[in-house]
Design a protein around this nucleic acid. Structure first.
Lengths: 159, 159
DNA sequence: TTGCTTTTTGCATATTTATTCATTTATTTT
DNA sequence: AAAATAAATGAATAAATATGCAAAAAGCAA
C-alpha cells in the first residue's frame, strides 16, 4: 500500500509545480520512485480535494485547495505536529491531546483543512475533540488526519 | 455572435450554482435561452479562467477565480462603472478616464480580474493606463474589459 | 495465526473535456 | 461597399479523466 506515501507526494508536487495532466503527474511520481496508474491518480486527486484552475497562460494546472493560505502549506504545517501528544478514539469521536495551551492552535490547522470527513472540532486548553461526519469511519478520519498532519498516525494510541 | 451574452451568463451560473459538467451547464444556459455546444463551453470556460474544484462532497464543481474575493463578485462590480468617463486606444495601450480621484479604485477592479490579456495597469488621479500583453489585439482587450465591467464598451470613444 | 472485512489498485471501458477542421459571422481595411 | 482579415461556432474526433469490476493487499477479530 503506497497510498500513504503517494498522497503527500502528489500534494507536494502539485503545490510546487505546474501540473497540467494526470500523465504529467504520473511521470513526476515515477521520477520519485512512485509507480501507479492514471486511474489511481484520478481517485487520489479527488480524495485530496485537488482542483484544476487557470495557469494564467491560457491553460490549466492542478492545485491544492487554499494553497494560498500559508497556514496550510506543506512547508510549514509540520510545526503543529510536535505539540500533539496522543490520539484516542472514543465513542465515534477522536480525542487529541496536545501540550498545554496548544490545543486551539492545532485545531485551527485541522479546521482550515476543510476536510469533508471532519464535521468540526472543539478545542480546550490541551485537548481537541474531533467530530467526524456521519457515515465516516474512524479509520477514514485517521487517514484524513494523516493527510493534514503527516506523521500523525504514529501518535495514535496503541499503534 | 452570442459570446458577449454567453460569457457573463456562464460566469453567473457557475458562481451561483454547483455545476459539475459541461453538459449540466449546457442545460442551464438553454433554460436561459442561450444555445451552444459543449465545444464552445470548453473554450468559454478556459477563456473565463474558470477552474474546477472540490465541491466538498467528494465531487467537483466549476468555479470562477477569486470568487471568494468580494471586490470581484458579479453583484457589486458594477459600482465601478459609473465613474468611468471614456476609453481611448493609444499606441497599443488603452487609456481610461474616470471621475477625479477614482482612477485607482477602478484600476483595482481591473487588476483583480487577473485577466491574461492585461499585463498590468497604472493609475493616476483620473486616468488609468491599461497595458495589454504582447500578442493581444486591442479588440481582445476590449472584449476582456467588457467581461470585467459589463456595459463598458458603450464608453469606448467613437463607438 | 486464520478467516472475514475493508481498502487499494490495475485493467478495460465509459464518460467527459479539448481540439481540429470547415464554415459562418463579424470586424477591419482600402 | 467590397475585399480581406480575424473571431466565433458546430460537427466530428481526439485526448484526458473517471468508473465498474475483479484481484490483491492490508487491516481486524477472535
Amino acid at each position: 500500500m503506497q497510498k500513504a506515501k503517494r498522497l503527500p507526494a502528489i500534494e507536494k508536487i502539485i503545490a510546487e509545480e505546474n501540473i497540467s495532466s494526470h500523465e504529467m503527474l504520473l511521470k513526476k511520481l515515477k521520477a520519485k520512485g512512485i509507480n501507479c496508474t492514471q486511474a489511481t491518480l484520478s481517485r487520489d486527486l479527488r480524495q485530496l480535494g485537488a482542483g484544476r484552475v487557470s495557469d494564467g497562460k491560457g491553460g490549466y494546472k492542478y492545485t491544492m485547495p487554499e494553497s494560498s493560505n500559508s497556514t496550510l502549506s506543506v512547508s510549514n504545517r509540520l510545526q503543529v505536529l510536535p505539540v500533539v501528544c496522543d490520539i484516542v478514539d472514543a465513542k465515534g469521536l477522536l480525542v487529541i491531546r496536545t501540550l498545554p495551551g496548544n490545543a486551539n492552535n492545532a485545531a485551527i490547522y485541522i479546521d482550515n483543512s476543510s476536510r469533508y470527513e471532519i464535521a468540526g472540532t472543539i478545542a480546550g486548553d490541551d485537548t481537541i475533540l474531533v467530530i467526524p461526519r456521519d457515515g465516516i469511519t474512524n479509520h477514514q478520519v485517521h487517514t484524513c488526519l494523516e493527510l493534514i498532519l503527516p506523521g500523525l498516525h504514529e501518535k495514535i494510541k496503541g499503534k
